[in-house]
Design a protein around this nucleic acid. Structure first.
Lengths: 243, 243
DNA sequence: TGCCCTTCGCCACAGTCGTATCCATCGCTC
DNA sequence: GAGCGATGGATACGACTGTGGCGAAGGGCA
C-alpha cells in the first residue's frame, strides 16, 4: 500500500467535495495530516494540474482536470456505450426520461440519462448515487437478489423519514420480482418511475434502465405503453457480454 | 514534489485514456516504470477504489470513482453554476444547441451543453477539448486577445488539413473583434455556430457561450434572431465576479 | 502590534524502489 | 498429446531515496 498515493487522493477528494476553495490548515485538520505534509502534496497536485491555487488568498481548489479524466473513463465505459442508444430510443418512444444505472453496494449510480429539458428537474444528475431502497431501479435490483433484506434494513434505518416500513418494502420487492419490473415514486415528489434489470454474462444483474416522468403523465394507457416499451428494450438488449 | 503521487496519477491517467483493460506490463512499459512498482501502485489504487482488477485476466481498468469525483467538481464549479440557467433559456428561445466553454491554453474546454436530442451529434461532448482555431467559441477568445497570432500559427500547423490560411483566419478574427461575436463552421461538417465571450472581474475573458445548429437552419431571420439572443444573454450575464 | 497561516529548510527514518525468485499461463515443436 | 520454452504476474527482501515531522522564518489580516 503506497501511503503517499492514498494521502494524495484523500486531499484531492476533500477538495472535490468542498463547495468552495479550502485553506491549507482546513485540509490538514480534516485529513489528519501535518500541515507541511499537505503543503507538499498540494504542491505536487498543483504541478500535475489537478489542483489550482489562488495566489492572492492562497486557497486551493480542484481543477477540472479530474473531471476531464472522469469523462474520458465514462466515455469508454462498455455498459454506457452499449445501452445509451437504447435510452435514446426509449426516450423517443415514450417522451419520458430514460435512465441507466448500475449497482454499487447498497446504492445505485446514475450512469446516463436522456431527457427532455423540461423534465431535467425530475431526475438526478449523472455521476451521483441514491440508496437502492429509494429508487425504482434500486428496487429492481433488490427484486433479483437472493437476500435483499439486509440492504432494505440498512437503507431504511439510514432514512428515518421514509414513508414505509421494512415489511412493506419487502412485500413490494416480492411483487416486483413476480411482475418483472419495479414501479415506484422515486426520489422526487410528483415523479413516477418504472425500472427493469439488465443481466450480464452468467445472469448477474449489472445494470437497470428506468423510465421516469411526472406522476400525472405516468398513468393509464401511457404508463402501460411505457412499461411495454421498457420490457421490449430489455429483451432487445438481451444478455450483455463482456460487462 | 511527491514523486509517488505523480506516478500514481500517471498510472490512473493511462488507464483512464485506455479504451480497454490494460495488462500490468503494458502499463509499466508505457509509463517507463518497473513492473513491481506499477504492481504496488495498482494495488493501492484498487484498494482505494479507483481501479478495478479483473481477477480472471488480471487486467486493470479505471473504475467510475474518478468520474464521480469529477462530477462532484464540475457540479460545484462557479462558472457552470452561474451560466447553465442562461444556456437553458438560450436553448428555449432559439431551439438550437447552447454551449458553454472555457479557455485552456490553445484549446477550449466544453463545460456544458443544452441540446435537443436530435442535435446531439452536432456538438462535442462535455469534458472534451477542441483547438481554439477550429471552433467559433475559440475564435471569440482569439478576437479579444492582444496577440492571437501565435495560437493561430500553432493551431494551423497542428492541423495540416485546415481549409484556411493563417492570414485568412487573422482577418476573420479582426472581423469578429469588430462585430462582437464569432461565426464559423465549427468542427462538425454541416453545422454553424455563433459565439461570444464572457468576461470576469477585471475584464479577463473567462468563458464563452455559443449557439450551434445545422447550417440549413442557421441562416436568414433565424440566424439574426439567434445572434441577438446570444448577445442579449451576454449582456444580461454582465461581468462575472468571483470567477 | 499581535496572532495566525503559509512557506521553507533540515534531518531521521519510514516507505518506496528495484533486483531477484517463484508461479501460472500460453504457445510452440516434436 | 506431452514436453519445453517464453511471457507475464505475484511475492520477498535489502538498499536507499524520498517522504514526513519539527522548527523557524516570512506574510497577511484584524
Amino acid at each position: 500500500m503506497d501511503t503517499t498515493v492514498a494521502k494524495g487522493m484523500l486531499v484531492l477528494e476533500m477538495l472535490a467535495h468542498a463547495r468552495r476553495p479550502m485553506r491549507l490548515s482546513a485540509i490538514s485538520d480534516a485529513a489528519g495530516l501535518h500541515k507541511s505534509n499537505v503543503h507538499r502534496l498540494l504542491g505536487t497536485l498543483v504541478e500535475l494540474g489537478y489542483v489550482e491555487r489562488d495566489p492572492e488568498t492562497s486557497r486551493y481548489c480542484a481543477s477540472l482536470r479530474t473531471w476531464e479524466l472522469g469523462v474520458s473513463i465514462i466515455s469508454a465505459h462498455p455498459l454506457r456505450r452499449a445501452i445509451s442508444p437504447h435510452l435514446q430510443k426509449l426516450h423517443a418512444l415514450t417522451g419520458d426520461t430514460a435512465i441507466l444505472v448500475t449497482p454499487v453496494g447498497d446504492e445505485v449510480l446514475f450512469l446516463d440519462r436522456v431527457a427532455a429539458a423540461r423534465l431535467l428537474r425530475y431526475t438526478p444528475m449523472n455521476g451521483t448515487r441514491a440508496p437502492m431502497v429509494m429508487t425504482a431501479s434500486g428496487r429492481a435490483f433488490l427484486s433479483v437478489m437472493a437476500d435483499p433484506r439486509p440492504i432494505v434494513e440498512r437503507g431504511l434505518s439510514a432514512a428515518p423519514s421514509a414513508q414505509f416500513s421494512v415489511e412493506e418494502l419487502m412485500a413490494d420487492i416480492a411483487i416486483t420480482r413476480d411482475r418483472g419490473y419495479a414501479l415506484s415514486g422515486g426520489l422526487t415528489p410528483g415523479a413516477l418511475s418504472i425500472a427493469a434489470v439488465l443481466h450480464g454474462q452468467g445472469g448477474r444483474p449489472v445494470a437497470a434502465i428506468a423510465v421516469s416522468g411526472p406522476r400525472r403523465v405516468m398513468q393509464g394507457e401511457h404508463l402501460d405503453a411505457a412499461i411495454e416499451q421498457l420490457l421490449d428494450t430489455c429483451a432487445e438488449i438481451g444478455e450483455l457480454d463482456g460487462v
